[in-house]
Simulated scan of single mutants.
Amino acid sequence: MKTLIAIPARYASTRYPGKPLVSLRGPDGDKTLIRRSWEAAMAVRGIDRVVVATDDDRIADHARAFGAEVVMTSSDARNGTERVAEVATHLPGFDVIVNLQGDAPLTPPWFVEDLVAGLAADSQADIATPVLRCDGAALSGFRADRRAGRVGGTTAVFGQGGRALYFSKEVIPYTGRDYADDEPTPVFHHVGVYAYRPAALAAYSGWPVGPLETLEGLEQLRFLEQGRRVLCVEVEARGRKFWELNNPTDVAVLESMLADMC
């Protein structure tokens, strides 16, 4: 299947303005968030094209300077999926379009490879997204964020065949117990990567924003509210730590994880 990765990046983030241009220190020196996300995309096997999608000249100029292809999009996009949908209108002819969000530079390449394979194997799915089972340590981190009033990672619940039931910024499902740091839990971390079939992606921007998407601020809920099949693909960490940059406090977390990868 001919596959495109688009990396949506906007400067005017409500929670973290200028986030794509934030510098992250790693074993290979200081690099911006958007550059590290682009490098993560370039490491994925079987991808035909990788582009950065933005409406901001500062991000575009920076991305072009380190060698990325840039597609300029309008400032009307309300989320990354709408921005990627606009990219798809400029770059037709792909069988799968992947949205690798620009705040997830630690995304291992096999997450995306497994995601694309999962979508290819389920002809009924309109969109696929990875989920990672939390161990006790990760679950404790999620709970600590919520107690402190921070938006940490998103969790997912799904039924038979991996069909998504719901996504939330709260920690779901409720477990009512604590777990050892290395103990598997029934809570799954939703990894912010999506693989879309072109028809479903094209329809997305024309759908109204529903009440669940409004309440949670999660773009993928629009597919569920429209009755579309969202496939959750369980992926394996293989010893790698994973986290997105959601808040300024996450910079130190990501830098620590980058140091551990050397």
Score class of each variant (00 low, 15 high):
1 M>R: 13
2 K>P: 15
5 I>M: 06
5 I>Q: 04
7 I>Q: 05
8 P>D: 03
9 A>E: 04
10 R>G: 05
11 Y>F: 08
12 A>G: 03
19 K>H: 09
22 V>H: 04
24 L>H: 10
27 P>T: 02
29 G>P: 03
30 D>C: 09
31 K>C: 03
32 T>G: 08
33 L>Q: 06
33 L>S: 01
33 L>P: 08
35 R>C: 11
35 R>H: 07
37 S>T: 15
39 E>T: 01
41 A>M: 06
44 V>L: 05
45 R>I: 06
45 R>K: 15
45 R>L: 12
46 G>Y: 01
48 D>C: 05
49 R>I: 01
51 V>N: 02
53 A>C: 07
57 D>R: 14
63 A>S: 15
64 R>V: 14
66 F>H: 10
66 F>P: 13
66 F>Q: 07
67 G>C: 10
67 G>H: 02
72 M>I: 11
74 S>N: 06
76 D>T: 15
76 D>R: 15
76 D>A: 14
76 D>N: 14
80 G>C: 13
81 T>D: 03
82 E>R: 04
87 V>E: 06
88 A>Q: 08
92 P>Y: 02
93 G>T: 10
94 F>H: 12
96 V>Q: 01
97 I>K: 00
102 G>F: 00
102 G>K: 00
103 D>C: 00
104 A>E: 11
106 L>R: 03
109 P>H: 10
111 F>M: 09
111 F>L: 08
112 V>K: 00
113 E>D: 02
120 A>R: 14
121 A>N: 11
126 D>R: 11
127 I>W: 02
129 T>A: 15
132 L>M: 14
132 L>R: 14
133 R>K: 10
133 R>P: 11
136 G>D: 07
136 G>L: 03
138 A>L: 11
140 S>N: 11
142 F>V: 01
143 R>F: 00
145 D>N: 11
146 R>N: 04
148 A>L: 08
151 V>I: 14
152 G>K: 12
156 A>P: 02
160 Q>T: 12
161 G>E: 06
162 G>A: 08
162 G>R: 13
164 A>K: 00
166 Y>D: 09
171 V>W: 03
171 V>C: 10
172 I>P: 03
173 P>A: 06
175 T>I: 10
175 T>Q: 01
176 G>V: 05
178 D>I: 07
178 D>P: 01
182 D>S: 14
184 P>S: 08
185 T>P: 15
187 V>C: 13
187 V>G: 09
187 V>L: 11
187 V>A: 07
190 H>L: 14
191 V>C: 14
193 V>K: 01
193 V>A: 12
196 Y>W: 05
196 Y>R: 07
199 A>P: 00
200 A>E: 01
201 L>P: 04
203 A>G: 07
204 Y>H: 00
204 Y>N: 00
206 G>I: 12
210 G>V: 02
218 L>R: 01
223 F>H: 00
224 L>S: 06
225 E>G: 09
226 Q>T: 10
227 G>L: 13
228 R>G: 02
229 R>N: 06
233 V>T: 09
240 R>Y: 06
242 F>G: 11
243 W>C: 07
243 W>Y: 10
244 E>Y: 11
246 N>S: 04
253 V>P: 05
260 D>Y: 00
261 M>L: 15
262 C>S: 11
